[in-house]
Each structure stands twice: as structure tokens, then as C-alpha cells.
Nucleic acid binder design. Structure first.
Lengths: 153, 153
DNA sequence: TAAAAATGTTAGGTTAACCGAAAAATTTAA
DNA sequence: TTAAATTTTTCGGTTAACCTAACATTTTTA
């Protein structure tokens, strides 16, 4: 029904450009290469592709910038990323692992699934205080037991 | 730290063989092809690779079966799949979408993340009844409001 | 049981996304 | 301001995983 529009790789590049632009200002081939841990020739190749698709502006040997269209995609991906990081932290996944896994999940999940995850994060974050069930969940992780078990057993 | 051992594709094939074996008994090239929606030559090619790696037994024009090593991998993937399906259903994601997304996630998530998800599913499933917070979450999805909001506002 | 149908394999091709080595352009610094 | 260093691109490869067309084998059935 809803088909994926762009490859994981295209999304990664646009997201990388977006982050670098936000954090450092200028975006150059080597920045992207080190951010994504790829070699410069791979970056040049992809920049060509992204230019032709209208996602970025890039003059030879010059700077890279997102077009409005590229920005739209990048923001979408970055938003999914943020949601996923928040979700994984709810689960108690460590930051480093959360980063890695969010980077994978952000390319594969259906909009509807993303929407449910976003709601879950919002559900917890807009609660007046840390919800009881979350505390119980963490307790359950440690002990394998439900908090109220003693009452019932 | 923990590197991924097999490609998504290898995992998909082993999982497919596992499912077909369980549901239909015999596993043939065409079964795998239709299960994975690939063409028979692609399947033959991969079966060769899986044989060489020691994951399956396969004689030309004959049946396919998992070796103990292949079974181990397939069971691991299938277990992740099951956990993910349960998790997505908790979230209220429809069956069809859950299937699609579980098939993607099962190849990319870190063990630790999987472990947390498994715990969450277990936390809910071993609770004496449907937890209140889940009901509240569903309510929140529909209305964007917390159940107890009325009391507080 | 031999011809037809179905299934499986081989051979050759495509594509995306990476790579290294070498060339070209730009930047730095002597 | 030119030579050295750095950065970027070009060029030619590689690999994984798919494909189609053609061929081989097995199974079905007349």
C-alpha cells in the first residue's frame, strides 16, 4: 500500500547532511564521509545522484546544501530517528545501542508503526510524572517479577 | 561490539525454510521462491551459498533441509520475529503491517534491544489482566488525552 | 512409457553501494 | 606566488542479491 520511496542509503546521506548543516554550518564531502564512515569517492558518487534527484545543491569541489525537497525528506528521517531514540530509551536501551538501532529502524518502519511509537513516547512524556508501569517494567527487567506479585501469591 | 553475523537475505531464507518445513513438511525451491516472492534462479543461487556455509542440505533437484547449525539460526530469527509481532500488536499495529515491519526489524536490532522488547512483551503477557496503562495508551491514541486528565484540569 | 508439463538449474546480465588508486582542483604555508 | 599538502573527483573494480532466457531434469498424464 505505502511503498518506500528512497533507499536506506539515500535517507542516510540526506540525514547526515541535515545534521552536519545544523551542527557545523558548512557541509563538505569529507564531513559526510567521516560522519557516515564511508570513503570520499562513495560520497561524491552519491552526491551526484542526490543532485540529479533534486535533493541537494552541489557544485564540483564546493559545498553541499539541501534543497527544500531534500530538507523535507531529511526532516522526516530525523524526526523518525528522534522518536526511535526516545522509544529505545524508554525501554532502557543504552544510548550507544539506541543510536545504532534507531539508525536501522528509521529506514524500515511503516508510517503507521512509527505513528504508534510516536504516540507511545508522547503518552509517557506528557504524563504528569514517570508512570508507575514504567517503574514496574524496569523492576520486571531486573527481577523477572511483577511488583504486585507478593500480594497475589 | 556485537557484529551482525549474517545478511538479512541469508536470515530470510533460513527462516523461510524453517517455516515451510514446519507448515508443509517438504521444502523445495519453488516453495521458497513463492514464500519470499523471488524467482527460482535466485533461490537456487542462495541455496548453493547456504549449502556451502553448512546451513542446509540440498541435493540438485531435491529437497532442502536445515542442518542443526541452520536450524539454530532459523530458530533465533523466528523467535525475534515472534517477539516483534507480539510487540507490534501491543502497540496496536494491524496484523499485516506488523508482519511486514517485523520482517524488517528482525534483521537489524541489537540483542540488547531485542531483549528489552522481549521483556516488555513478557511483562504485559504475564500480567494477571490487561494492564491499565495499555488501556490508557489506547485511549490516548484515540483522543490524545490522558485518562486521568479530567481530575487534574 | 513416451510426450507434455512442471520444476529446477545454468549462464549471463543488472543494479546499488561500496572500495582503492590516481588525477585534478583547491587550500595552505614557506 | 609557487610548491606542498589536502581535498575532491574520476576511473575502474568488487560484491550481494536480484533478474530473464535457455537448458536440464523430474513428474505427470495420456
Amino acid at each position: 500500500m505505502f511503498k518506500k520511496k528512497f533507499s536506506s542509503s539515500v535517507e542516510d546521506y540526506l540525514e547526515a547532511i541535515y545534521f552536519i548543516e545544523k551542527e557545523r554550518g558548512d557541509v563538505r564531502t569529507s564531513d559526510i564521509a567521516s560522519f557516515l564512515k564511508h570513503r570520499p569517492p562513495s560520497v561524491t558518487e552519491m552526491l551526484d545522484k542526490l543532485s540529479k534527484k533534486g535533493f541537494i545543491k552541489h557544485e564540483k569541489y564546493g559545498k553541499v546544501s539541501l534543497t527544500p525537497q531534500g530538507m523535507r525528506v531529511a526532516e522526516e528521517v530525523a524526526s523518525r530517528h528522534k522518536t526511535l531514540i526516545s522509544f529505545l530509551e524508554l525501554l532502557g536501551v543504552d544510548r550507544e545501542t539506541a543510536e545504532i538501532d534507531a539508525c536501522k529502524m528509521e529506514h524500515v518502519l511503516n508510517r503507521r508503526t512509527m505513528s504508534r511509537l510516536r504516540k507511545l513516547v508522547e503518552f509517557v512524556q506528557t504524563a504528569p510524572e514517570e508512570p508507575e508501569w514504567l517503574k514496574h517494567y524496569r523492576h520486571f527487567i531486573k527481577t523477572g517479577e511483577h511488583v504486585e506479585c507478593k500480594k497475589r501469591v
